[in-house]
Design a protein around this nucleic acid. Structure first.
Lengths: 227, 227
DNA sequence: TAATAAAATTAGGTTAACCTAACTATTAAA
DNA sequence: TTTAATAGTTAGGTTAACCTAATTTTATTA
């Protein structure tokens, strides 16, 4: 039996593990993410370990087993399908979809997910550019990197964002930077790593390194010097 | 704070009260409806009474206060809007929609409900012919009565059903009786109150009194002799 | 490296939502 | 109208999901 809460714990572990792959997922990380206290997390972790969804020890932190990963990826799948549906079919904005999808992802009906996935045309990516896992939990390939890794002169296309906060998304909307937009890196400030960008519609856009880290792009030229 | 369970208790009381208006809503009724045991219901009733959503005593049973009724009607509204949306937009069958709507009705987003209500064209009735309360909790007027109350020769139109079970809905689908279909009561069997009906597509349909009680109709002739 | 800060853990407590068992009050039937 | 059945109620217990406070580890830093 997968409950709403269990799903959220597994998804949190998945997301935290993916957010920073170098770091292990600690009880405190999970507690902050889910807005509960560490003892609550420890308690739940013990249950998830017993159910075979997670392994845990102080040094490696919490890790999903294959079963746990399958469940987590299914929730991620549902979430991203709903986000896309809300955005494309029901005309919600980029920044509104997340919160509603957060509820809808727990609706238990494979047929409903299949149906709306069909309606949106079985896409590989959601409106934030995040990959939608398939039913087997496989993620579509994509070669994305932060805009902040660009070098001067690089031409690239926006494929997604790694931050989904409303402030950040609204900031991008203001700058008129959206999914699939082409960017040219005019200049990089050596002091604070801020960049100057141009798009079709606008030139000399100034952007902080902080923001550039959250924008995921791909070089357009096949052998671009960007790493 | 209205939780998922609280919403279900209030909805149950509303539905039981409407199902049989002559009878008071007892703890046992609610327990059977929600598939829990009577002591669980008593406990929850005490909380709902304290919150001002319900009144309760042994003789009158559980009754919704105005606040309680408002909440219950809002859930009923969401449920019926989702049913209609699933049926009309996502091509689910008559008999499939209920179970999924049962989950979707608890999604908390007025904007989402408004959006899908718009998409389906702001109808007054759902695909079972049940009235959709408006935002203020007002039900659209309709003059429906069970088919079983018809007299011989009556011409009427199907406006809904009062039973929503899958067996019953599939039975109607088999008989090719659907919403807005016209029926003529050919004959009524005096012994067991079963009736013989005809529709556009079929004649001499035999139907038990039990089934006829669950079909809601309206006479077509303005001064029909049916009561 | 000793002191301090931070994280992990344990102990023990609360609340909501369930339950069974036992008892009391009603209602229905013999 | 006594008895039997049913419904309502109380008592007491469980589990999940939270919490705080205290303790033990582990890291950090002076």
């Amino acid at each position: 039996m997968k409950t709403y809460r269990e799903e959220n714990y597994l998804k949190a572990i998945y997301q935290l593990a993916n957010h920073d792959k170098s770091k292990s997922v600690s009880p405190t990380d999970i507690a902050n993410w889910l807005e509960v206290k560490p003892p609550t997390v420890l308690e739940k972790l013990a249950i998830l370990v017993k159910k075979g969804y997670v392994t845990y020890n102080k040094f490696d932190g919490a890790k999903l087993t294959q079963t746990g990963k399958d469940i987590a990826l299914n929730i991620v799948r549902r979430h991203r399908i709903w986000e896309t549906y809300l955005y494309k079919e029901l005309k919600f904005s980029w920044s509104e979809v997340h919160e509603i999808a957060e509820q809808l992802e727990h609706i238990n009906s494979d047929k409903l997910i299949d149906r709306i996935y069909d309606v949106i045309g079985n896409p590989d990516f959601d409106p934030h550019g995040d990959p939608i896992p398939n039913k087997q939990g496989k993620l579509p390939k994509s070669d994305r990197r932060p805009l902040s890794q660009s070098i001067k002169g690089c031409k690239c296309v926006v494929l997604g964002v790694s931050e989904h906060s409303e402030v950040f998304l609204n900031y991008l909307t203001e700058l008129k930077i959206g999914l699939n937009d082409k960017l040219i890196v005019e200049q990089i400030n050596a002091y604070d790593d801020s960049l100057k960008l141009s798009t079709k519609t606008k030139e000399h856009i100034l952007m902080s390194a902080k923001a550039a880290q959250q924008i995921l792009v791909q070089c357009i030229k096949p052998n671009c010097a960007c790493k």
